[in-house]
Amino acid sequence: MTVHVPRVVFACRANGGRSVASRLLTEHYAQGHVIALSAGTEPGDHIHPEVARILEELGLDTSRERPRLLTPEMIAASDLAITQGCGESCPYVPGATYRDWPLDDPRGQDDATVRRIIADIDTRVRDLVAELAPGHPLPPSVVPAT
C-alpha cells in the first residue's frame, strides 16, 4: 500500500522571498510528510539577500535555492497551490485547489519587517502542515517567541 504524500506549490512573483521561506519552513516542519515546491511568475536572478539572511539565522539553509518559473504543470501536479502576491499572473489550472496568503513582500525591507513577515509565514506553514499531515508531530517553531 502506498501512502499519498501531499504536494504543495508556493507561488509568488519573483520566487525570491515569500515562496522560498514557505517552502523551506514546510520542509523543515513536515520532515518528508509534505512535498513543497516554490516558484514565481517572474523569477528573479537570486533569493533576496535580506530574506536569505533571516532564514539562515533561523537555521534554514538557502544555499541551494534558485528562483524558477511557475508552470501550469507544477500546479496541476500539486494538491494545493498557495499564491502569495502573484495575483492575476498566476496560471489558472482547472480543477486545481488554490489558496491565497496575503503577505507583505519582504524584498528590500529592514530586518525587523522581514522577521515579522517570516513569523507570519511560519504560523501559516505550521497550520498547513498540521492540516496536510495530521498526526505528524510538529517540531518546535524556529521563530523565537516575542
Rank of each mutant, 00 (worst) to 15 (best):
E131K: 15
A130N: 15
P67T: 03
I82M: 06
S63R: 15
D45T: 14
T146Q: 13
A112R: 15
V8I: 11
I35P: 00
R126W: 11
E88N: 15
W101H: 04
A76H: 05
M1F: 06
V9T: 11
E73I: 06
T123D: 14
A14Y: 03
P91W: 01
D45V: 12
A39R: 07
L69Y: 02
R64N: 12
C90Y: 05
D104L: 14
A133C: 07
D120F: 14
L132A: 11
G59N: 01
I121H: 03
A11F: 02
Q31F: 04
V3A: 15
D100W: 04
E65G: 04
Y98R: 07
P134T: 05
A77R: 10
V34Y: 01
L37Q: 13
R13S: 09
E42G: 11
H48W: 11
G59K: 03
V93F: 07
L70A: 02
P134V: 05
D110F: 15
E27H: 04
I82D: 12
C86E: 05
G17H: 09
A30T: 10
T2K: 12
S38E: 04
R124P: 06
D45W: 02
A81G: 09
S38W: 06
G17R: 00
L103E: 14
V5D: 07
I54D: 04
P6T: 01
S19M: 02
N15V: 05
F10K: 01
S89Y: 13
V93A: 07
Q109H: 08
T41H: 04
G32L: 01
G95M: 05
P140G: 13
L80V: 07
D45S: 14
V114H: 13
R7K: 06
P49Y: 12
V5Q: 08
A133K: 11
R126N: 12
Q84A: 03
P94F: 07
T2A: 14
R116L: 14
A112M: 08
H46K: 14
R116E: 10
R99T: 04
A39D: 02
P144G: 05
D100M: 12
P140W: 12
A76F: 02
A30E: 00
H48F: 15
D100G: 15
S78P: 02
L37C: 10
E73Y: 03
P49M: 11
G59T: 11
A36N: 03
I117C: 09
E56S: 10
G95P: 01
A77C: 05
T123W: 11
C86T: 09
P102T: 13
H33L: 01
T26Y: 04
R68F: 00
R18Q: 06
E73H: 09
P6K: 08
D127I: 14
P67K: 02
T71Q: 00
G108R: 12
H33G: 08
P43H: 01
V34D: 05
T97W: 13
Q31W: 00
L69W: 08
H28T: 11
R7M: 00
A77L: 03
I82K: 08
R66G: 00
T26M: 08
V143F: 05
L138M: 11
L70V: 07
D100R: 10
T146P: 10
A36L: 05
G108L: 10
V5N: 01
T26G: 12
P72G: 03
R13Y: 01
V9A: 06
E73D: 09
D105Y: 14
A112G: 09
V125S: 05
A52Q: 11
W101T: 10
P106S: 10
Y29N: 07
P102M: 09
